[in-house]
Amino acid sequence: MSDQRKEWFAKVVESGLKNQIFNPADVLAHATPDVLANHLPPELLSKVLTASLAAGSMTPERVLETVTPELLAAHLPHEVLWSCIAAAAARAGVTNVVVS
């Protein structure tokens, strides 16, 4: 994965969250626990668990506070991020085509 592509997907995901194109739950609907567990490095998984334990719960918002868009783009397959973006666009009525 090129750095530019990573950076771009990070910005897109960040903008999508900021502009409420999709929310953290939508992200985790595609970046499932299985995906996260298989792609995030151990130290990052540890941080997620630590933050959740400290807060007393693990919510999608809290997960994304730790696993930021930059980290998502750095570790997750970009197809996963794109499927999230495309599904959100389809929900918004921008396109009827859901890119898998």
């Binding site: 530019q4 910005k11 897109v12 903008s15 502009n19 194109i21 921008v94």
Partner: peptide, 17 residues
């Protein structure tokens, strides 16, 4: 939801990168 702002970010960063 601000889909246009999202597109602005996406396209601008795509061209920049």
């Amino acid at each position: 939801m601000n889909i246009k702002a999202f597109f602005v970010d996406a396209l601008t960063s795509a061209l920049d990168l």
